[in-house]
Design a protein around this nucleic acid. Structure first.
Lengths: 221, 221
DNA sequence: GTCTATATTGTGATAGAC
DNA sequence: GTCTATCACAATATAGAC
């Protein structure tokens, strides 16, 4: 189960790919996301990385610093991309579809990621500083430019009679909710609906194609 | 912050209301929901209950058994009620509105509850047996009667041209998503939208009144 | 039933050889 | 940089007096 190795660069001295710090960080991501921060064990991370526990402290000093590094790593993947979509110049329909597809396609490969990020923010709100714009001290301007731009877009459409008025905060919350919850609640849904892994994947496929239409229909006047 | 006491029954011998086992269980709920199972400490629970740590083991034997009791307790509050609404004989519009109001009104008093339940199901899927119908071995018949009844209702409406067709699984997932996520993602939303506690409460008010309409509009043909 | 004291791990972290 | 060995303490669990 461990110690699987890639083809291996020709000059790899000990048959383990990548430099050690990266391997440890990747292993830590796996374990922290799987077990949660409080449930993760340094020993399990070391084993997953194929090194011993002392090296973890050599590179990251303490479990808490390693946890912070992990959070930056995994949250940094999705959040900026998602905000990029919402803050782009695209039309509303385009934004919704791109957001849904980006979110589901990305998270599918790491199903426990949303649950980890959200739980971590509950237990360690200070990690929000990860997203803070150093200049403004504001969480990466979702509160600022993005929300305002989106709000203007929604008001325009409403004024033209194309959609019903909706606050941009509610709009973003709906989008996030409909995309994220199937992953966060996966064990519950699989049991309640009686779905095995394959059936759940089909459930996600169906969602991916139907959500954009559903969201936009909900806004029609 | 602790040791607050009620008016007190006249025959209360040591001025602490309720019997000890109940006090411990309630304290355990508070701490487990706040910290998560792995992060909860027996000592903190003992302090919260106003007793010492040994009593926890006297009544519940081990941390794991206490955790199981807590999960039964808190999950047992909401899940059956929500399923009762969805499985009732009411019309679709009625079901949606009652579900949204029930969910938001109930969870508002325990904001971290959904996050706890969902995280717990990730880390301890075996707790799903809490919901298992002892007879059928099926998770409390959401997979069975309820889902079928709801599916029939949705198909009828679609056949009458009143809504677009939708699988009952997707419908339930949407309902749960739109209600639960604001609580699960509360720290993120508050920061991203720049809302203090009072503003977030208003955000929830708005959601409570707008969600039913939004959900039903999303289904129109 | 409830307490104090203590046993017994588990777990993050460090020292020091190589 | 990487390892083995070990420390120090936190946390669950138990023993036994009252």
């Amino acid at each position: 189960m461990d110690d699987e190795r890639t083809a291996g660069g020709p000059a790899a001295p000990d048959a383990r790919d990548g430099d050690t710090e990266q391997r440890i960080l990747r292993a830590a991501c796996t374990v922290f996301v799987r077990r949660g921060t409080a449930g993760a064990r340094m020993q399990e991370i070391a084993a997953e990385a194929g090194v011993n526990q002392a090296l973890l402290h050599y590179y990251f000093r303490s479990k808490d610093r390693l946890a912070a590094a992990v959070f930056r790593e995994v949250a940094g993947r999705l959040v900026p991309a998602a905000m990029g979509v919402l803050g782009s110049e695209a039309a509303l329909e385009e934004k919704v579809e791109r957001f849904v597809h980006l979110y589901i396609d990305t998270v599918r490969q790491h199903p426990f990621l949303p649950g980890y990020v959200l739980a971590e923010l509950h237990h360690h709100p200070e990690r929000l500083t990860t997203f803070v714009d150093p200049a403004a001290g504001q969480p990466v301007r979702l509160a600022g430019a993005l929300l305002q731009q989106l709000g203007a877009q929604l008001r325009e459409r409403a004024a033209a009679g194309q959609i019903r008025p909706i606050a941009p905060e509610q709009f973003v919350a709906n989008l996030l909710a409909l995309c994220a919850l199937p992953f966060v609640a996966r064990p519950l849904l699989q049991a309640a609906f009686g779905l095995d892994e394959a059936a759940f994947e089909r459930f996600l496929d169906e969602r991916r194609s139907e959500l954009p239409g559903l969201i936009l229909h909900g806004l029609r006047p």
